[in-house]
Write a protein that binds this DNA or RNA. Structure first.
Length: 105
DNA sequence: AACATGACCATTA
DNA sequence: GTAATGGCCATGT
């Protein structure tokens, strides 16, 4: 790869505090790509090797995105629950309560 | 270069 | 609430 457009995305995700989550759109906007939410998800998927809390990134519905491997859903949910995040009866996260405000604190 | 796929979001009806 | 449409970009064949 000749360029690393995901570098900024990784930086944002790494800044997400424990017990909080962020949406793809949020990350994309913070990274300077307001409409590139898709690329955010792709970036996280492509990362895999780096040490980033990709599990704290969910879609705008507060739900875990469907992947090629459905096993990951359970895995991600487990990680989030381990960080103190609660899921509702719909397997969704209360964005009003756990959504990252975009600050490091 | 063209086409298909992929961790998505916002708008409109 | 669901369904359809447009937009954006990277990667592999």
């Amino acid at each position: 790869m000749t360029r690393q457009p995901y570098q900024n995305i990784y930086s944002i995700v790494k800044q997400i505090p424990v017990g909080k989550i962020a949406t793809y759109g949020q990350i994309a906007r913070l990274a300077g790509m307001p409409n590139h939410a898709r690329q955010v998800g792709y970036a996280l998927a492509a990362s895999g090797d780096i040490n980033i809390p990709w599990q704290r990134v969910v879609n705008a519905s507060g739900e875990i995105s469907k992947r090629k491997n459905p096993d990951i859903e359970n895995y991600q949910r487990m990680l989030l629950e381990a960080e103190g995040i609660k899921f509702d009866l719909n397997n969704r996260i209360n964005l009003k309560r756990f959504l990252w405000n975009g600050s490091s604190d």
